[in-house]
């Protein structure tokens, strides 16, 4: 995560991630596994609980000053619901919080989500190390933005 001197301001502060399932979806097994894995990787982990609205997710992310919002849906509604989160961020002109996604996401949809700025979009069976590396990288991007905004 050492990404050069410009990040020194944050160097002692662990990456802060908000895990959220913003749709009507109770499949939380993966979220709990990720929460533990992220924590074991030294991150600061928040969980938005079940059924938060996209507004609530963003409010929490802003209030808690997270680096990354990690969205998960396994109900097929990712294109509608993830998009709402991404649209709201844009509407509020928030660009220093990265958004990553995961769940049962077909390949074709991954491209669409990427265009919305939602990266990762990992499916079941993805090694935790891959996800952790990606979140770490996106967190570094977000922090660079934060520095630039100062």
């Amino acid at each position: 995560m050492a990404d050069g001197k410009s990040l020194s301001l944050f160097k002692d502060k662990p990456i802060k991630v908000l895990l959220a399932k913003p749709g009507i979806d109770g499949h939380d097994r993966g979220m709990f596994v990720l929460a533990k894995a992220f924590r074991d990787a030294g991150m600061d982990v928040l969980y938005a609980g079940l059924l938060p609205t996209p507004e609530e997710v963003i409010d929490t992310a802003v209030n808690e000053d997270v680096d990354v919002i990690a969205l998960s849906l396994l109900n097929g509604a990712h294109l509608t619901v993830f998009k709402k989160v991404s649209d709201l961020l844009k509407a509020r002109k928030i660009d220093d919080i990265a958004v990553v996604g995961g769940g049962t996401i077909p390949d074709g949809d991954k491209i669409k989500l990427e265009k919305m700025g939602i990266s990762g979009n990992y499916g079941p069976g993805t090694p935790l190390a891959t996800i952790i590396a990606h979140v770490t990288q996106r967190a570094a991007d977000a922090r660079r933005k934060k520095l630039a905004d100062r």
């Binding site: 009507i24 509604a77 294109l79």
Partner: peptide, 17 residues
Amino acid sequence: MPTLYGYDCNNTRADGE
């Protein structure tokens, strides 16, 4: 999912589901 959680189809939360 909206039916399972007791939301009507026109609720904004049900959008896409």
